[in-house]
């Protein structure tokens, strides 16, 4: 029983990260139809930038995180402008190739600047809490709580602010939004910025308990991609739910069934679900 609870806790923690990262990706994929396969690598870069601010400037964890989020947001805007916008009118597969180019570039950049060794950010909250027989690291609880707050903020932003509703309008009908005088390019840039900033938040929360390495984003990026498709492209509740489901499948599958085939469960679940619902759980019928 304790083991089960512990695994559920682990699963929720995984799921929180997946949810944040997938959330950022679903915005970009749903609204801009950009298959941003480099999203996981933006997450990696976010972690390194937080590390940079902590180690080079001596700023505290929270301030460094804030700076990193801003920096990555700007990098996101830049990336949309330089890599994806010129490809707007081309087939999606070309944007996918550009994404592969971008991720190779980012990974090589991290390797050149910070080297291949794993780097650590000192854990600001190393304490542990015992509860119902399960052990919970404070930083891990922070990841879960932080994800929940972030999801709430993003929800309020999308529903209550003009910018948020504009983004949604563009997602629903790009041409229509354009006819209504919305500057679609500006919306694209802002969306990309927000998406990258959320990746930096996820990376900053996690890097004190994990380790930074240039290739850390590859698998996460792929999983986020899968979650987005699983939930339905562009669907925010889909990304959140998909993230938590994947986290739980992995923790329980890896803990109870087979650790070696852990990822097979996650990827297999996607195939099964898409076989029954070809456009994802919350997906709209594709035109």
């Amino acid at each position: 029983m304790e083991l089960l609870l512990q695994q559920i806790f682990n699963g929720i923690m995984f799921g929180s990260t997946y949810a944040i990262v997938a959330l950022g990706l679903t915005l970009v994929m749903g609204i801009l139809s950009i298959p941003n396969f480099a999203h996981g690598h933006l997450y990696m870069l976010g972690g390194y930038i937080t590390f940079f601010f902590i180690s080079a400037t001596g700023l505290g964890f929270w301030l460094s995180m804030l700076l990193s989020v801003i920096t990555l947001g700007l990098i996101g805007v830049l990336m949309e402008r330089m890599v994806y916008r010129p490809l707007t009118d081309q087939p999606h597969i070309n944007a996918f190739i550009a994404a592969i180019g971008a991720l190779l570039f980012l990974e090589a950049l991290a390797l050149v600047v910070w080297g291949p060794q794993g780097l650590r950010i000192p854990n600001p909250y190393p304490q542990n809490i015992q509860f119902l027989g399960i052990t919970m690291g404070l930083q891990r609880l922070l990841v879960i709580g932080g994800a929940a707050v972030l999801i709430l903020c993003l929800h309020l932003f999308m529903k209550k602010t003009l910018m948020g509703t504009t983004i949604e309008a563009v997602a629903q009908n790009r041409e229509g939004a354009m006819l209504n005088g919305i500057n679609v390019n500006r919306v694209s840039a802002i969306t990309f910025g927000i998406s990258s900033a959320t990746a930096a938040i996820a990376a900053s929360f996690l890097s004190p308990i994990f380790m930074l390495s240039p290739s850390m984003g590859a698998i996460l990026g792929m999983k986020a991609f899968i979650i987005v498709i699983l939930g339905g492209m562009g669907s925010i509740p889909g990304a959140i739910l998909g993230g938590y489901i994947l986290g739980l499948i992995e923790a329980l599958g890896g803990g109870y069934v087979s650790a070696a085939y852990k990822d097979v469960f996650a990827f297999g679940a996607l195939i099964v679900i898409l076989s029954f619902k070809p456009t994802g759980i919350f997906g709209k019928k594709e035109a």
Binding site: M222, D263, F267, I271, L274, S275, P278, T279, E286
Partner: peptide, 27 residues
């Protein structure tokens, strides 16, 4: 099963199959 899906969805389903076969090859 996978050709029931289209576009991005087909790409991802086949990617998943690829990853699964890769993991199986390793284990």
């Amino acid at each position: 099963p996978s050709l029931r899906t289209r576009g991005h969805y087909f790409a991802i389903v086949t990617l998943c199959f690829g990853v699964i076969l890769w993991i199986v090859a390793g284990n």
